Lab assay of single mutants.
Amino acid sequence: RKWEEIAERLREEFNINPEEAREAVEKAGGNEEEARRIVKKRL
């Protein structure tokens, strides 16, 4: 699934746990840019 690939990239890029990465992607509706913004806000 594409969402899992996005979550994996976010996890590696921001050094967050898989659960946090998945939550961000879900919140963003699968949009990678939006997920990235969500993760950055949390850091």
Rank of each mutant, 00 (worst) to 15 (best):
R1V: 11
R1P: 11
R1C: 10
R1M: 12
R1Y: 09
R1N: 12
R1F: 12
R1D: 12
K2H: 12
K2Q: 12
K2D: 11
K2A: 13
K2S: 13
K2Y: 11
K2M: 14
K2G: 13
W3F: 09
W3Y: 09
W3G: 04
W3M: 07
W3S: 04
E4L: 10
E4Y: 09
E4G: 09
E4R: 14
E4T: 09
E4I: 08
E5I: 09
E5R: 07
E5S: 06
I6C: 04
I6M: 11
I6V: 08
A7I: 14
A7F: 05
A7E: 08
A7V: 12
E8G: 09
E8L: 15
E8A: 14
E8D: 11
E8N: 14
E8T: 10
R9E: 04
R9Q: 06
R9K: 11
R9N: 05
R9I: 07
R9T: 06
R9L: 08
R9M: 08
R9A: 08
R9W: 04
L10Y: 00
L10P: 00
L10R: 00
L10E: 00
L10N: 00
L10A: 00
L10T: 01
L10S: 00
R11K: 08
R11L: 12
R11T: 09
E12R: 15
E12Q: 15
E12D: 11
E12K: 15
E12G: 09
E13Q: 07
E13P: 00
E13R: 04
E13F: 06
E13H: 05
E13Y: 07
F14H: 03
F14M: 04
N15F: 08
N15T: 06
N15Y: 06
N15L: 08
N15H: 13
N15I: 04
I16F: 02
I16N: 01
I16W: 01
I16R: 01
I16M: 06
I16A: 03
I16C: 04
N17F: 08
N17R: 12
N17H: 10
N17L: 12
P18W: 14
P18Y: 13
P18R: 13
E19P: 04
E19Y: 10
E19R: 08
E20V: 10
E20M: 15
E20G: 04
A21C: 04
A21D: 00
A21F: 02
A21K: 00
A21L: 03
R22C: 06
R22P: 01
R22Q: 10
R22V: 07
R22K: 11
E23Q: 12
E23L: 12
E23F: 10
E23V: 10
A24G: 02
A24K: 01
A24V: 10
A24E: 02
V25C: 04
V25N: 01
V25Q: 01
V25M: 05
E26R: 13
E26H: 12
K27G: 06
K27I: 14
K27D: 11
K27A: 14
K27N: 10
K27C: 05
A28P: 00
A28D: 00
A28V: 03
A28Y: 01
A28G: 05
G29Y: 11
G29T: 06
G29S: 11
G29N: 14
G30Q: 02
G30F: 04
N31Q: 07
N31L: 07
N31R: 07
N31M: 07
N31P: 00
N31G: 03
E32F: 12
E32R: 04
E32M: 10
E33A: 13
E33V: 10
E33F: 13
E34V: 10
E34K: 09
E34G: 06
E34M: 12
E34H: 08
A35V: 02
A35K: 00
A35Y: 01
A35W: 00
A35P: 00
R36H: 04
R36F: 04
R36I: 08
R37S: 09
R37T: 09
R37H: 08
R37F: 04
I38Q: 07
V39Q: 02
V39A: 05
V39Y: 03
V39D: 00
V39K: 01
K40F: 09
K40A: 14
K40V: 15
K40N: 09
K40Q: 14
K41A: 12
K41H: 13
K41I: 10
K41R: 15
K41N: 10
R42Q: 15
R42A: 15
R42C: 04
R42G: 14
L43A: 06
L43T: 05
L43I: 10
L43G: 05
L43K: 08
L43V: 06
